Simulated assay, not measured.
Amino acid sequence: MAQRLVKIIIYLVLAMMILIAALIALYWAPDRSVAELKQWQLPNSKFIAIQGMQAHVLQSDKCDVYRSRSSIDQAVSAGKSLPEAIVLLHGTSASLHTWQGWIKELSDEYCVVSMDLPGFGLTGPYTDESTKYSSANYAKFVIQVLNSLNLKKAPQLTLAGNSLGGKIAWRTAILYPEYVQKLILIDAAGYPATPKHIPLGFKLAKYPALTPVLIRILPREVIKKSILSVYADDTKVDEALVDHYYDLTLRQGNRKALNRRLRDTDNESNPAQIKQLDLPTLIIWGAQDDLIPVENAALFHKDIANSQLKIFDDLGHVPHEEDPVATVKIAKDFLKQPLKVS
């Protein structure tokens, strides 16, 4: 009986090893270098040295006046008004590409800046592995990018963020209030939430024991299902969109960084801090958001005195990407509202 049990265990172990070998053979997807992903660098994006990283940052043409202190001084001396700036921050596992629809609509009037946050897109992970993927460290990164681009000189700067990017936006406004005059929060993190559905990629990345395997294999279907879970309209998730998310997930170090990001929760940014915000804030939410429920939109609206709320009934967790035209229209109206002088 004992020998039979040993044989069964050996067969099970062998079967498991064969299964793992088959999965690796079928879904083998090693890290890719930035050079191998060059197609995802846009014509108006560039790399900036921040904290030892090469941060992938996009600027619209209106930002040219901020290219140096001297160009700013020359414009002011000539009586030219400096353009207002809007900075766009993406969510977990996304990249600056998520904002392409908004960038197209805003670039004629504003200095528009977007960036790949550490651990995502072409920026990749923090070079110092001891750095936590906390909202405070992300806020510090954003400020260093703004300083590098001389954007503190902008007459008005708006931070807009989705999901994790929304949390980074409001945390930046609290930690560095002298930089931010307006906020746009889109399905933002900040309050406790019980997701109806969690993207499959997020579920797998939470387990450190799976990291050695997950950084070497990546079924494309995992990425597709993750995108479908944050969209309300599945027909908008085409193969080109899946390719984009899939390729940038393979950027060297991003899969390992995602595991860290999902474990590096920061308790210092509790919801009570949101009540400290005292600046014009637009809250945009997709009612079909299964990751951060629409009830959280009402919490932001209640706790931020100077806030406006717009809910889109037919959109999901990434409304700015799913329907950029409808959502940016609300944002443009908000941006044109004058600041109240106290």
Rank of each mutant, 00 (worst) to 15 (best):
288 Q>P: 03
20 I>T: 15
211 T>D: 14
81 S>D: 13
40 W>Y: 11
240 A>C: 10
314 D>H: 05
221 E>V: 15
67 R>Y: 05
79 G>D: 08
62 K>P: 04
252 Q>C: 07
153 K>D: 13
341 V>T: 11
125 P>W: 03
254 N>Q: 09
13 V>C: 15
41 Q>P: 06
244 H>W: 12
258 L>H: 07
137 N>D: 13
27 Y>Q: 14
151 L>D: 12
27 Y>P: 03
257 A>E: 04
146 L>H: 04
189 A>N: 08
146 L>Q: 04
179 Y>L: 11
323 D>T: 02
1 M>W: 13
289 D>P: 00
201 G>N: 07
212 P>D: 10
320 H>V: 00
218 L>W: 13
302 K>P: 06
22 A>M: 06
59 Q>G: 00
232 A>Y: 14
191 Y>L: 05
287 A>I: 02
86 I>S: 07
66 Y>P: 03
33 S>Q: 03
119 G>K: 00
65 V>C: 04
128 D>E: 09
187 D>P: 00
282 L>N: 04
189 A>H: 04
131 T>C: 06
306 N>K: 02
165 G>K: 03
49 A>V: 07
9 I>H: 10
184 I>N: 05
290 D>T: 11
240 A>I: 15
250 L>V: 06
47 F>L: 12
108 D>Q: 13
19 L>T: 15
46 K>N: 10
96 L>G: 15
23 L>Y: 06
148 S>H: 12
52 G>H: 06
138 Y>I: 11
228 L>R: 09
13 V>D: 08
61 D>R: 01
45 S>M: 05
206 K>E: 14
308 Q>M: 06
136 A>G: 04
68 S>N: 01
10 I>K: 08
39 Q>A: 11
26 L>G: 15
221 E>F: 15
340 K>C: 00
77 S>F: 07
184 I>H: 07
330 I>T: 12
322 E>Y: 01
203 K>V: 15
165 G>Q: 02
60 S>F: 07
148 S>L: 08
333 D>K: 00
117 L>A: 03
35 A>R: 09
278 D>A: 12
308 Q>F: 01
40 W>F: 14
266 D>I: 05
50 I>T: 02
135 S>N: 09
47 F>H: 04
247 D>Q: 06
19 L>Y: 15
256 K>R: 15
137 N>V: 03
307 S>H: 03
216 R>P: 09
159 L>A: 14
102 W>H: 12
273 Q>E: 11
50 I>N: 01
194 T>G: 09
240 A>S: 12
189 A>R: 09
74 Q>A: 14
187 D>F: 03
93 S>Q: 10
96 L>S: 14
210 L>W: 08
